[in-house]
């Protein structure tokens, strides 16, 4: 098979509050022989909040980001669900609306860029599941995670709205997603089922609506604990921050002590591939990862 190559859109979080996500992404890409070209020119996706303020500006900025992947002739991979949502949403809106695309391109022309629509946008999780292949990955596992009950936490913005996400996630059903479960199994782990696995972590309303956000976080961790999970795994750094850092507020909000280690998707894969905890940045977690 030809070597897989992607343009990596890191998003802001992986460069700031979850440095372990970028580290572990690069570490497993290296082990798997996937080449990731960093898009250092890219700006923030707006995280669906800039979209609330200035929709057109957010389209222009996201289109600009995609331009840089197009220049490389590569598919863009994201490592944040919300980046995936906003980038894929921009692409879809421009690709289906020539008038809007022309308006955005008129702005991009001022900086010598043109959005063409030639690059696909997909989350790294789906690049692994669909392009790399779980069978191949399973064969490369050195340290099967067979001692662990692992709770997949999908995060909203990889699976909903399915009309948009199904363009890149292989038809995952938001009411019964399977990719992350399949990945856990490929890593030799035991996937646990619980009602909150495809629910919202509350991240996006944390400042404006702290109680709602904290209850959602608490319910998610409690659901995983009740299903006997040893730890959780998520493809989204924003879900990660919410679940890893906010368990005090979450416990208070739901009136029950909840806490579980939460791994980023590439950290889990990295453990199975035999990477060291340091290579995966496991020291950066607030809820200590004490099982390795």
């Amino acid at each position: 098979m030809e070597k897989l190559r992607y343009a990596l859109y890191t998003g802001c979080t992986a460069r700031e509050s979850t440095p372990e996500l970028l580290k572990s992404t690069l570490a497993i890409a290296d082990k798997l022989g996937i080449e990731l070209v960093l898009l250092d020119e890219a700006s923030c996706c707006g995280a669906s909040h800039l979209q609330d303020y200035d929709d057109f500006l957010s389209l222009v900025l996201n289109a600009r980001n995609i331009c840089y992947a197009e220049k490389l002739g590569l598919t863009m991979v994201t490592i944040c669900n919300t980046c995936q949502l906003n980038t894929a949403m921009t692409k879809h809106r421009l690709d289906t609306n020539p008038e809007l695309k022309a308006k955005v391109n008129a702005k991009l022309a001022e900086v010598g860029l043109e959005y063409k629509g030639t690059s696909e946008v997909t989350h790294f999780l789906y690049a692994l599941v669909q392009d790399f292949g779980l069978e191949k990955l399973a064969k490369m596992v050195k340290v099967p995670l067979s001692h662990f009950n692992i709770a997949p936490f999908y995060g909203c913005h990889n699976i909903r709205p399915s009309e948009l996400q199904n363009l890149s996630n292989g038809g995952e059903n938001p009411y019964n997603p399977t990719s992350l479960d399949d990945l856990i199994i490929a890593c030799g782990g035991v996937n646990v089922d619980y009602a909150e696995k495809n629910k919202c972590c509350g991240f996006h309303a944390e400042l404006q609506s702290p109680h709602t956000a904290a209850v959602l976080t608490g319910n998610a961790i409690a659901g995983a604990m009740d299903a006997n999970a040893d730890w959780m795994v998520t493809p989204c750094p924003l879900c990660h921050l919410k679940l890893d850092v906010q368990h005090h507020a979450a416990s208070k909000a739901i009136g029950r002590d909840v806490k579980l280690p939460v791994l980023h998707m590439p950290q889990m894969v990295g453990l199975a591939l035999g990477c060291t905890p340091a290579e995966l940045g496991l020291n950066h977690h607030v809820t200590k990862v004490d099982f390795v």
């Binding site: 460069r15 700031e16 509050s17 979850t18 440095p19 250092d40 020119e41 890219a42 700006s43 200035d54 057109f56 500006l57 222009v60 900025l61 600009r64 702005k107 991009l108 001022e110 900086v111 860029l113 850092v245 020291n283 950066h284 977690h285 607030v286």
Partner: peptide, 27 residues
Amino acid sequence: NGKIVMPWNMPKSKNLDEIKKLVKSSS
């Protein structure tokens, strides 16, 4: 746990001038 970037270490996008220009013209 090394999760906070200090102001003086704040990463910046490459070609930031493009972004500034677009924010100005597209807001």
